[in-house]
């Protein structure tokens, strides 16, 4: 019996999206990053183009509360200073992008004003040359109040504004159009809603090359199977030619992985699970690797050691040994 390679002929490839703009393109980034372009499933180099995933490291614009010790050790020296934090991620840990989360916007907590939030964005833009993702606080009213000012503060930089949801997308879409940004299409683990939001964004004029998809995720052990399958289905739909699902995908890894007790608990509280390091770091890295296998293009991560491990794994995933 002779063996024939089982090659699939996919109908389409994933849309390419460029994040960040250099001076030449009206921004101030040292370099722009193009994601997407996959012509097959992850790592199947024998079948087509498989772009390398990008790692964005997350920066909070105020001091986090209740973080587990391994994260505190990595970042406590830059707490409360998003510019210094971002710089540390880029210079020490080689982050490809910075994901700035404007947690201080939360009206139930610090409730920073739109002008103050815009200052945080400007400080990070000045501190680092990599492209940015800017994430609101999740309170629709507050986010819609802040976006025009925050988006304007980064005008021309082609940041990803996060995020547009089915019942709250108009303001963010308008800001992205006005200031030349990319929009993150967020859905609650539902491929139909994801598609619907893409349609809604298209209807208001956001072009396919300015949309990135995000399905809400869970950490390893906590619903990751849902996200895994929805990402796979989305990618298969995109490769099958569904234009509304052919955008690159982003996964939030750090905050999800570190939310679960297998990462959070120190050894004293869970001796049967062994030392918190490397357990917690592996929890984040394993969560990331699972999403990569489902097709994710951008990972948003927290711990520098987890970033390092995922980078090493990615390198190996793109290396051909004996092939097949």
């Amino acid at each position: 019996m002779s063996f024939e390679m089982p090659v699939e002929n996919w109908r389409a490839s994933i849309t390419q999206v460029t994040i960040g703009a250099t001076e030449q393109d009206g921004g101030t980034r040292e370099r722009a990053i193009t994601i997407g372009g996959a012509a097959t499933l992850p790592f199947l180099a024998f079948e087509g183009e498989t772009p390398r995933p990008i790692i964005a490291m997350e920066v909070l614009d105020e001091q986090p509360e209740g973080w587990p010790e391994p994260l505190v050790e990595a970042f406590s020296d830059v707490y409360g200073d998003p510019a210094a934090w971002a710089q540390k991620c880029v210079e020490e840990y080689g982050a490809d992008m910075i994901c700035l989360r404007l947690v201080s916007a939360d009206p139930d907590e610090t409730n920073a004003s739109p002008d103050e939030l815009a200052e945080h964005v400007k400080a990070v833009l000045e501190a680092v040359g990599v492209p940015l993702i800017i994430w609101g606080c999740g309170n629709y009213d507050k986010d819609n109040e802040m976006w025009p000012i925050v988006s304007q503060a980064a005008a021309g930089e082609r940041v990803i504004l996060a995020s547009a949801e089915e019942d709250n997308y108009k303001t963010i879409a308008a800001c992205a159009l006005a200031d030349k940004h990319v929009v993150l299409n967020e859905s609650p683990l539902d491929i139909n809603i994801q598609k619907q939001v893409s349609i809604l964004l298209s209807d208001v004029g956001v072009k396919p090359e300015n949309i990135v998809l995000y399905e809400v995720t869970g950490g390893l052990g906590y619903g990751i199977e849902y996200a895994f399958s929805i990402l796979e289905r989305t990618r298969l739909a995109g490769l099958g030619g569904d234009k509304m699902l052919s955008a690159p995908m982003l996964s939030v890894v750090g905050s999800e992985a570190w939310k679960v007790k297998e990462a959070r608990l120190p050894e004293e509280e869970a001796p049967e699970w062994g030392p918190q390091v490397p357990r917690s770091i592996l929890w984040e890295a394993a969560t990331a690797l699972t999403f990569l296998n489902a097709g994710t293009d951008i990972l948003v991560m927290w711990h520098p050691e987890a970033v390092k491990l995922v980078r090493q794994a990615t390198e190996d995933l793109f290396t051909s040994g004996n092939g097949f």
Binding site: P6, F43, L44, D316, L317, T319, S320, F324
Partner: peptide, 14 residues
């Protein structure tokens, strides 16, 4: 006998 993680994913898929 894959030599890398990339080999593994490709071999397993094939």
């Amino acid at each position: 006998q894959p030599k890398t993680m990339g080999d593994t994913v490709q071999q397993q898929t094939i």
